[in-house]
Design a protein around this nucleic acid. Sequence first.
DNA 1: TTGAAAGCGCTAACAC
DNA 2: GTGTTAGCGCTTTCAA
Lengths: 341, 341
Amino acid sequence: MPVPRLRDVADLAGVHTATASRALNPATRSLVNERTVTRVAKAAAQLGYTPNPIARGLKTNRSGSVGVVIPDLTNALFPPMVRGIDDVLSAAGYCALIVNTDNDSEREQTQIGFLRGRQVEGIIFGTARLDSPFLERLVAEAVPIVLINRRVETPGITSVTVNDADGVLLGLHHLAELGHRRIAHLAGPQWTSTGKTRLRAYQQGLRDLGLEQGNSELIVMCDAFTEIQGAAGFETLLERNTGCTAVVAGNDLLALGCYDVMQRRDMDCPEAMSIVGFNDMPIVDKLRPGLTTIRIPQYDVGAEAAQLLLEKIRSGTSSAKSVMLDVELVVRGSTGPPATR
Amino acid sequence: MPVPRLRDVADLAGVHTATASRALNPATRSLVNERTVTRVAKAAAQLGYTPNPIARGLKTNRSGSVGVVIPDLTNALFPPMVRGIDDVLSAAGYCALIVNTDNDSEREQTQIGFLRGRQVEGIIFGTARLDSPFLERLVAEAVPIVLINRRVETPGITSVTVNDADGVLLGLHHLAELGHRRIAHLAGPQWTSTGKTRLRAYQQGLRDLGLEQGNSELIVMCDAFTEIQGAAGFETLLERNTGCTAVVAGNDLLALGCYDVMQRRDMDCPEAMSIVGFNDMPIVDKLRPGLTTIRIPQYDVGAEAAQLLLEKIRSGTSSAKSVMLDVELVVRGSTGPPATR
DNA sequence: TTGAAAGCGCTAACAC
DNA sequence: GTGTTAGCGCTTTCAA
């Protein structure tokens, strides 16, 4: 038994395919006699008809799919975002094509080409660099785009981000209240908005708290948001003998790197060093000690981004209504008062 | 500047669209004069032509996409598998449509319908129940299917699984060597092959080791592979006062539940209780103590499944060449000798 | 080896 | 309101 065509439905209902098409499409249904609509609907149901989106797409130039570009799905930050995206998208009859770039710009290029070849109607990016040649080209070609998590310097690009600055300040104030006076920062890559914004907020926060003395030696730059880089950065910090008693890590993965080093060196957390992360990735609550971190609404970031993208696709306009979501400090075991000397 | 069509390429190369089509398609290229091929290729490159897969799909009835059905992408077990799938698929020019079922059969039904509507050429399932009405129907309709992680009772369905029995035995032997004599099991849902196989292996293993006395009170059934269920199961076990000194958990999430309870009750691991997990999910190495568990090749499971599915799609046959991959015991801090009384 | 022509399943003008 | 007709971009017979 072959898959039923629109043709079959039309025949069964005793109408032309065009009428059947109109009756089945909510947007054009009003053009058709009510009784005809029910007859067609019944015929469709009886045959178990589902429209072939390929054929439809060919005609309408709409694929019903959007691309999602992320560095790596196995980075725990992304699955909840992707679920948020997917839930919103599928409710709208769309589907997501997810591609991983591994932070390799050549690969990103290829993947974007792949997505465009697949006729995606828009793209959600989780990989943005502050200077983003790809993005500008895509924007110029009027491809609907939404950035998640990160922003770019080019204005006019829609993004859904979290309040990075606020998050860092929350962490700093928490540490200051515990009595910390020398607080270090493992800064993420400065070609990302997250890395840059968080570093700036750290510097601003120290000034606000009057703790900016010897600031520069308390900052370690990390080349990537990875555990490895976090460990390396933390080692560097320790070797500097700065006398710091707490670290605000650029994100949870960098914080995990700190944990590794502390375990290796037999340092106790938070006694020897308090650590604050960023993101509240799944499972950081399970660490010993649980990681004090800034919780971001991962699922909502994805869901909101999908919503904005759909609006863009539907309206065809390129209004850049960016959204910034609130964050929250989650205090766990990795922060405590500094050891008294 | 509009997207170039095959027509444009053909015009530029001074040939008919049919010839251009043949020249561009590796399968039919041999039918075309070599010089013509180069001319067409050059024209295509110059225009930056990419074939429109929608139009192609309409003609060939091939969408170039496959469905991936999993319970929940945010379960850390799946992202690596999905990456494995995606890497293989995209190398073959295919893409993956991922859907989440949240273990809800109704939702699963809907999602499968969605995938079929999207004309996927095959489906990879990570959600199989031992009795699987959906699957049988799909098989009957000759939809290429590959199961990952789990198997079903119906024979003739291709699957890529890991050696569950072996894994459990490795865990048991490890515990026995450490001196444990009363070893409990938190069994996963018995409507999954993983839950059932691991339980059987546990029972068999105890017999092999001559430790089967009072077996039944050492088994706690969990309704789902979740942390919550693991915690509940472990509580039940403790209330039974079985005198057990070690637990083989049905998977890592159940093991995490044990961690929660131990933390709440201020029990030390492994002194008060040794715990063995299953899967070696990302980050369980970061727990304190690190979780001793059975490592499964998550990425390879996905990659292998994608490979098998592609073969099925290409050959059109329904040979059920199932694959079972090896597992490995990873010893970390959660297992140690039993406390001496 | 290449061109002509038909058509995949659907939708959108346009006419009735 | 509904039918007619054309065509989306591509592949694939069939002829030449």
